[in-house]
Write a protein that binds this DNA or RNA. Structure first.
Lengths: 202, 202
DNA sequence: CTTTTACTAGAACGAAATTCTAGTTACGAT
DNA sequence: ATCGTAACTAGAATTTCGTTCTAGTAAAAG
């Protein structure tokens, strides 16, 4: 477990195989849920052996964790890239909402999986996730700090910004992903973007 | 499975036993997570036999489902009761936020469990949950309809109300329950209540 | 060319969910 | 009151499924 993640670079075949396993796993999870998916399902779907799975991921939860972490990082990266093209507080707040809509629509299965929280994370993975979250939130706050400083954005308890800006669209998307309502996020994007800006503007 | 749920009323001892199993299960889930809890853990903790568990609940997921459904209904009931004491749109919207804070604080383990989504629901349970949700949402909309009719509350796409009103506080509470921030919901209750009202007032 | 290490393979193992068989207890009908 | 039936309890037997283990093959390093 220790030696696997350090040292030598992975062979090209390894990178491919790991990617194909994660893809296969996501498909299985999307169809049968995490618990409903067996190691054999993944192994068959990825055309590899059990030994290979365990060599690369260590456990079933290991696969689930890596998929989860990759997904979060993909989402975060996209968000920061989008954000850094914005010129002011209003554009930024609205971009957060818009990007979340777009990403979730483009990556439905992955979005559903990230919402599902069906994974028993190892303590290592939990620590890793905390780090990722801390770094991400740090970058986000750093981006918004100037807008708050010049009172473009309202001063609030730090923990309140994310819920106020992203809470409604998260809730909407979660419901949409589980089939609760008709309109795809694109249809309500600007409504929620306006509401978010309204909630935090100075 | 079919005959169990119809026909004869349950004996008093049965009601007690089922309740004690659900309580035991919630404790185990809170400590070790759903996956980390074995049937034996529950069985020992509830002082009953494996046969008894399977007689009453059919499976481990059956226990998890019933706990989930009971929890949702408890939450819904409390919300409607609170709501029906309100006199106007503003009071109602703010009551939704306040009641959610209070309930989650009073029932931390259950709230965490409801947020966890760690359950593979059977199709029966999924249908049941849809029904419950439909009825609940129906009652909520019926309550708010008059306020919308007289433009106390803004006219919006139906699917937007819940996310706009409850989205932020849901997000906040979810983060609080998983240890992300300091302030208990009570501390930010009025902030989020005001924001919710602001988002939907006419 | 040899040695080492990454990687693949699938049979064997063990833990935990579920099923099965054999009961016991409550309760309505006769 | 007692008989028959269905609710309920019990825990051993079985099955399922994640994980480990042993035996290899392919590829890179020396």
């Amino acid at each position: 477990m220790v030696s696997r993640t350090r040292n030598r670079p992975e062979r090209p075949a390894t990178v491919e195989r790991k990617a194909s396993v994660l893809e296969a796993a996501l498909n299985c999870f999307a169809v049968n849920g995490v618990d409903g998916t067996t190691i054999q399902d993944i192994q068959r779907s990825a055309n590899c052996s059990i030994g290979s799975l365990y060599h690369h991921f260590g456990s079933k939860d290991g696969i689930a964790e890596e998929l989860f972490i990759d997904g979060i990082q993909n989402l975060n990266r996209g968000m920061l890239t989008k954000l850094r093209r914005c010129k002011n507080g209003e554009e930024s707040v609205k971009a957060v909402v818009g990007q979340y809509c777009d990403w979730s629509t483009r990556n439905k299965d992955l979005a559903r999986y990230l919402h599902s929280r069906d994974i028993e994370f190892s303590s290592e993975a939990r620590i890793r996730l905390k780090e990722i979250h801390r770094d991400y939130i740090g970058a986000i706050y750093a981006w918004f700090a100037p807008f708050v400083a010049r009172r473009e954005v309202r001063v609030l308890p730090v923990d309140a910004y994310v819920p106020l800006i992203s809470g409604p669209i998260h809730e909407y998307v979660r419901r949409w992903l589980s089939g609760h309502h008709e309109n795809p996020p694109a249809k309500v994007k600007s409504l929620f973007a306006d509401a978010a800006w309204n909630a935090v503007k100075g």
